[in-house]
């Protein structure tokens, strides 16, 4: 059996375990809801986690995936983790929770000569984590930028008005 098939055959089990491992990082009382409610709008956290997990696992397995598609699939998930109350390391490290699960389910089923295939898969995960890191940083910058823009917007007209009062150097602005 080709390595890719081994990855494929364990897919549902690995993804489910990984998603649950991510849910388990949230308080106990919340995980039941995260696990059971399937609607993407009434349980968005589970939806974005599942979306990310599926695409990431497929990309890690070695399926043909464009970097753009992977980014798109993890975008919501990383945006969420970038603003939830946790350390940056905790935000990102959930990707690495995939490794022990793959080592449990995939690695033993691979033939010896396929070890390189497995190592390649883990390296692909490392690449995805770096992509996630970029999105994470961008998200944090957006939060900071939002703060600045908001403060500016609140008083936008006051500043404009203050510049007009008493005559602005700009002729057309100083007519009040």
């Amino acid at each position: 059996m080709k390595s890719l098939d081994v990855f494929f055959n364990c897919r549902e089990q690995v993804i489910e375990e990984w998603v649950n491992a991510i849910f388990n990082t949230y308080p106990l009382q919340s995980t039941g809801f995260l696990r059971t409610v399937k609607d993407p709008f009434t349980n968005p956290v589970a939806d974005m986690t599942r979306e990310a997990a599926r695409t990431v696992y497929e990309a890690v397995s070695g399926w043909d995936k464009k970097p753009e598609d992977v980014k798109q699939a993890i975008d919501r998930f990383v945006h969420l983790r970038a603003v939830q109350a946790m350390l940056p390391s905790q935000g990102i490290m959930v990707f690495y929770l995939l490794k022990p699960i793959m080592r449990k389910h995939v690695l033993p089923k691979l033939k010896d000569q396929a070890l390189q295939d497995y190592l390649d898969a883990e390296s692909r995960l490392d690449t995805i984590v770096l992509m996630a890191f970029d999105i994470y940083m961008k998200s944090r910058e957006t939060v900071a930028e939002n703060r600045i823009r908001e403060i500016k917007n609140q008083h936008a007209q006051l500043v404009r008005w203050a510049q007009r009062v008493g005559g602005s150097p700009l002729e057309q602005e100083g007519k009040s």
């Binding site: 709008f41 968005p44 939806d47 969420l80 939060v143 939002n146 908001e150």
Partner: peptide
Amino acid sequence: TEEIMELRMRSGMPRGNALRY
């Protein structure tokens, strides 16, 4: 208020999520 921008991005997520859709 801007000092809780992180919190607002969390609590606004269900709205933002539907908008993104």
